[in-house]
Amino acid sequence: MFVSRSMTRKVITVDQEAYIFEAQELMTRKNIRHLPVVDKANRLIGIVTDRDIRSALPYRFFKESFSETKKEKLSNLSVKDIMSKNPISISPTYTIQDALLVIQDSRVGALPVVDDDGKLTGIISVRDLLRAFTNVLGIGEPGTLLCILVEEKVGQLKKIVDAITKENISFGSVLVARYWDENKRAVFPYLLTQNVAHVKKKLEKLGFTLLDPMQWYLDQLPKHEVTAETPK
């Protein structure tokens, strides 16, 4: 699960001397929101986003209420005037988990991927990460989610996995989540089958509690409420 597997390799870049209109046109045409800025040797020197451009070009500008001189001044702006210099970047050997944490902390929408020589080798966006996690969850494949409550002690997961494997059922994924009762965990195996009635009974016989997923959802709801910060 390394970044190099999930990143976009054919990166569309821009020269620092390009006019911001050119950068904007490029982003629109390629349907992207981040343009890494590189030098002649393909070394990363900055990044410019669609938001950078929008804040450099006031909305009113398009309404032609600006004087011609002001317009000209703005249209002479080049990428180097508005780009973020020394942007946060990561190495291709970072894991997907690393990238996720960096993106979460830095609040950027994409991370340029740079090798040991400082050369740009790719870019990984929130969209790429989402795709990677859809894959991890296994939900691209048909299957059924179980929700099992287990005691927090060694060997519980193995019992579950063994019981399911014995039924010849393949796993799409297994997630483990905290439960309101500190001594318990909720385990969510995503099974690549429609036929789960028998294995459910078997797990119950082994002493596991099968949770109604809605009950779990409702129990968790108030505790997990996070208020999103809105940028001022």
Partner: peptide
């Protein structure tokens, strides 16, 4: 589909 086969 988050709780049942086939997930679509």
């Amino acid at each position: 589909p988050s709780f049942a086969y086939p997930g679509t």
